[in-house]
Amino acid sequence: MLDASEGYITEDGRKIGGVVMEMKNITLRFGGVVAIKDISFDIREGEIRAIIGPNGAGKSSMLNVISGFYVPQEGEVWFHGQKRPPMRPYEVARQGIARTFQNIALFEGMSVLDNVMTGRLNYMQAGLFAQAIWRGKAEREETENREAVEKIIDFLEIQHIRKTPVSRLPYGLKKRVELARALAAEPKLLLLDEPMAGMNVEEKEDMSRFILDVNDEFGTTIALIEHDMGVVMDLSDRVVVMDYGKKIGDGTPDEVRNNQEVIDAYLGVAHD
């Protein structure tokens, strides 16, 4: 089923392309603590790639490495066939990697619309003076990007709260607004850090549907971290399993589910 160079066809018949992002032998240390130990995996175009593992396995650290927030001590990050030099997070964002956060990181003092518009910074080029007089490029950009943002707002069904300050929204909607902000950047790679944490069943179903729709309609490549095994196994095409900073499994949900090491990590194993 897996073809190293050309991609593969998923169980539900979607065609997955070549490698978008490749992590090669990543090691990340905080002082003496090794958060990630020599991990390699790839993310392919159009796929939904899950990273799972027990608490403290290093999943979020891995996502932070991808989004440039942490610089690994060893290993290489390859994006679109090029080795990525160490760069600041905002430069990574410019390359087309957007993300959401485990604990919602919206801009609480701004409206939903402004939050989502902030996601489109990469498309805003008007200079300070054009913006100061609100003429020419500044006004044109504002309108064009507003149109793009309104499409995302429609897509995620948050039209009714467009002008509401984010601080007034309930948790589930905030998660959705955060997804909208990430999507507004039209990312090549979308990172979702526990998109369903703290949600009830209904909200989880909504969010799963949105994630699948995003992947389906925009063809966005998605890497996600999630604790809910049912959701992960349903959504993802391939799964990386981490435990204590090491990779203990990698493959389709079925392969991972039957991997003895993964079962041991999740259920615990008697030490003799």
Binding site: Y90, N122, L128, Q131
Partner: peptide, 26 residues
Amino acid sequence: NLTRGTMGRTWMAIRDMDIAAEIIGV
């Protein structure tokens, strides 16, 4: 004009959550 446009949004993003702002491209 500055505060209702791109510039203002980057300022407010820095004010509300500077780390998240940097990660989304500010």
